[in-house]
Simulated scan of single mutants.
Amino acid sequence: MLIDTHCHLDFPDFAPEQAEVVARAKARGVGRMITISTHLSRFDRVKAVAEAYDDVFCTVGTHPHHSHEEAEPTVEALVALSQHPKCVGLGEAGLDYHYNHAPRELSRRVFRTHIAAARESGLPLVIHTRDADEDCAAILKEEMGKGAFPALLHCFTSGRALAETALELGLYLSFSGVVTFKNAEYLREIARDTPLDRMLVETDAPFLAPTPHRGKRNEPAFVVDTARLLAGLKGVSEAALAEATTANALRLFSKMPALKEAA
C-alpha cells in the first residue's frame, strides 16, 4: 500500500468527481491520502474532504503564495485547529522566492509561526520551499536549535545542500512526479542518495502529473508511477518501496491511525 502524502482534493479541479478520484486511488493500492491546506481561511473545505472519506486526512496552514492574502496566523490558532481528529499536520508553509507573491519578510515570519505550532502540537510541518534554499536552511537550523519539531520538505526539487541539511536535522524528503521528468536527472541523483527510511511519495495533485501522465490533471492514483521510478532508483522492489514509504509516512504523521484501524 502507498500513501499519497500531499494532494489537494479540495481544489475545484476535483469537484465534479471527487469520490471517483478517491476510488481510483484506492483501486491502485493508494490506501491513504493527505489533502493539504493552502489557506487558513478555507480550512473548513479541507477538513470537509477529510471527514467525507475514511482514509483521507488533512493539514491546516497557509501556503507562502497566500500569506499576504490571509490574516497572519497565530500559534494558538494553528494548534487549536490542528486538534480536529482528521488533521494530522501543519502547513503547507514555507518560502517561495520563485514567484515572490508575498513579501519575503512576511513569508519568513509566517513560516516560523508554523514551525512553532508544529513544535507545540507535535504534528509534522509540511514545508514548501522554492528558490529559497539558503534562507530555508538557515531558518530550519535556527529553529531546530530552539527545540526539535517534525517536518518534511514536500515536492522536493531543491539542491543537494538543502537536502543534506534537512536530513541532518531529522527531516524527511518527499518526492513528486517531478522526479520522473526528463530534465530532472539532478533530482533523481538526490533521490538515489536519500535514505529509504527518510523518503516519502506524493502527487501534489492536481499539479505535476508524473510520466506517463504528463499534460493531464494529476490525481492520487498516479503516485504509483512515481513510486515505481523511485523503486528503480533505490534498487528495491515496488513492494519494498511502498512498505518503506508507508512506514515512514505513518511514523511522521503519527496521528493517523494504524492501518489495522482503518475502515
Rank of each mutant, 00 (worst) to 15 (best):
D44M: 05
T62Q: 04
L78T: 09
S82R: 04
G31L: 02
D55F: 08
V75T: 10
G31A: 12
P64E: 03
V30C: 02
G89R: 09
Y53S: 09
S67E: 06
M33V: 00
F43D: 07
T35N: 00
G91Y: 12
E105N: 07
P85E: 14
G89M: 08
D44G: 05
E72A: 13
V75G: 00
Y99I: 06
E105D: 15
D55V: 04
E51M: 07
Q83E: 15
A52Y: 07
H98D: 14
V88Q: 14
P73C: 03
R32P: 01
T74N: 03
A71K: 15
R42W: 04
R28M: 11
A71Y: 08
S107T: 14
G29F: 08
R108N: 05
S41K: 13
V46W: 09
K47P: 01
L90N: 06
A80C: 05
T38I: 13
T74Q: 00
H98G: 06
D54Y: 09
V60F: 03
A77D: 10
P73V: 04
A48D: 12
S67D: 03
L106T: 12
T35I: 06
A50W: 08
M33L: 08
S107A: 15
C87R: 08
L40E: 00
V79P: 05
E92Y: 09
T59E: 09
A27F: 00
H101N: 14
E105I: 04
H39R: 15
R104G: 07
D55T: 15
L106K: 07
D54G: 12
A50P: 06
C58V: 07
M33A: 02
Y99T: 07
Q83P: 00
H39I: 01
A48M: 06
H66G: 00
R104V: 12
H65M: 02
K47H: 14
V79M: 02
V56A: 13
G94Q: 10
E70D: 01
Y53F: 15
R45G: 09
V49L: 06
C58I: 13
L78I: 03
F57I: 11
P73G: 05
I34Q: 05
E92M: 12
G94T: 09
H63V: 09
D44T: 12
V75M: 01
A93S: 15
E70W: 00
L90S: 04
S37E: 04
Y97K: 06
A102Q: 05
E92P: 09
L90P: 06
E105G: 01
R108P: 01
C58M: 05
S67A: 15
A27N: 03
A27L: 11
P103H: 11
V30Q: 07
D54L: 00
G91D: 12
R42I: 04
Y53Q: 10
S82G: 04
V75N: 05
D54Q: 11
A27V: 11
C58L: 05
A48E: 14
D44N: 14
A77N: 05
A80P: 00
R28I: 00
A48V: 01
L40Q: 04
I34L: 14
A77E: 11
E69Q: 13
L78N: 10
L40G: 02
A80M: 07
L40H: 01
V75E: 14
C87N: 11
V46R: 02
D96F: 03
T35A: 07
A80L: 08
L81M: 14
N100E: 15
S37V: 06
P64H: 01
E72D: 10
S82V: 10
E69R: 07
D96C: 13
V75L: 02
R28Q: 09
G29E: 04
T62K: 10
G89Y: 04
